[in-house]
Design a binder for these strands. Structure first.
Lengths: 209, 209
DNA sequence: TTTGTAAATAACCAATCAGTTATTTAAAGG
DNA sequence: CCTTTAAATAACTGATTGGTTATTTACAAA
């Protein structure tokens, strides 16, 4: 009756705090996030948060690293050793689109980090070594498409990678203001599908000869 | 000696507070912004901020409205009644690019507003009536290009508008994290120029038959 | 069973926050 | 010159903030 003490489980506690942090930081931004709310959400004592992560900024970096690791792992699972390079690009764009749609916290954390001029990941050895496998994949796909005379010449894979990310990122990152400005609900099923098709068409339209 | 009282100038005071607010909100986000810092930056008493704008959120909305009005005015000045539709699109993309590059606070404010699900501009009659003249401009340019058989068929001007914004917005909004991930300074002159050319090529590549 | 370690807790703190109260004072109209 | 209005100021408030101190307690190794 007097002691509602919890079972000890450091791994679970740490994980719970990290997940709560991802939610809090992506919901309110770094400046608007509250350490007390994270502890409460994680059903953990605030002291444990400082014990495992140090301070608020270090916890934010941990949340960012978590988000980066997740998307890199998802990217790695993508098998694009298809025959048709056009189809490979199509799958690559739709994968990026779907990932951003299903993981809005990733976009939100990136926006916060950019607001703070990337000071956290600049210090992180972990993230800097976490290169996206997409760029190398893209290089091979582009080359294949060029050999088959279906893709244009002189395509920089990094530029293309950024363009694919652009057309997917912008829509979801700005979906609320765009919906107000255009006076229509861009989160509706049909609006999303229309835009997804358009995104693929823009990238392929640029690539094809 | 005893009274370092300022000259009275309500217009100038209000303007000074608004400009300070744009800087503060775009630097720290809505949650990280501090009302005291805005007053200090504006060289005005904090009480005047509440007198002219009401509260922190209302001031944020005023800053947003200011930013939206500025870009819409700049857009309106653009004369695109050229003969060549390809050139018109080129100028439209480079204008968007240049505006985002020169007004990073606009992107930052938009990101903050989207983090808060656009609750401020939803209440603003002012912004909702502030449609971009670009969409109608685009409709005419697209039609001209299609008549001249240089643009593809079935191009939605709203989709194209979003794609143009996308390829410009993403680069500047994410420039800090991208620079760390790719290990190169994307704010460098040559990197920006390379990307600007690519942005134009992506849009034109999609549009051209 | 004993004991060392670290996981967990509650209560606390100085600093800071958005917003307010009470007052003074510059300037325009008569 | 006088009066009225609103622009400007300083000092304050209750609530909240990120972070800490001091203490208790679960559990694995001996």
């Amino acid at each position: 009756m007097k002691k509602p003490t919890k079972k000890r489980d450091p791994e679970a506690t740490k994980r719970s705090i990290l997940e709560a942090a991802v939610k809090e930081f992506s919901t309110y931004g770094l400046g608007g996030a509250r350490v007390d709310r994270i502890a409460e959400r994680a059903d953990a004592n605030k002291r444990m948060l400082y014990h495992y992560f140090g301070n608020k900024d270090a916890l934010f970096l941990a949340a960012l690293e978590e988000a980066y690791t997740d998307i890199r792992n998802a990217e790695r699972k993508l098998e694009l050793e298809n025959v048709d390079p056009v189809d490979s690009i199509r799958r690559l764009v739709t994968f990026t689109w779907d990932y951003y749609e299903e993981n809005p916290h990733f976009l939100s954390l990136l926006n916060s980090e950019n607001l703070h001029k990337a000071v956290h990941i600049k210090r992180s050895k972990h993230i800097q070594l976490l290169h996206s496998p997409f760029v190398e994949m893209l290089r091979r796909i582009i080359e294949k498409g060029q050999n088959q005379k279906v893709f244009r010449a002189r395509v920089d894979p990094v530029q293309l990678y950024m363009s694919i990310a652009s057309v997917c990122y912008f829509y979801f990152s700005n979906i609320h203001t765009l919906s107000v400005i255009f006076g229509r609900d861009l989160s509706a099923e049909e609006a999303r599908e229309e835009r997804r098709n358009h995104a693929v068409e823009v990238i392929l339209g640029y690539l094809r000869v």
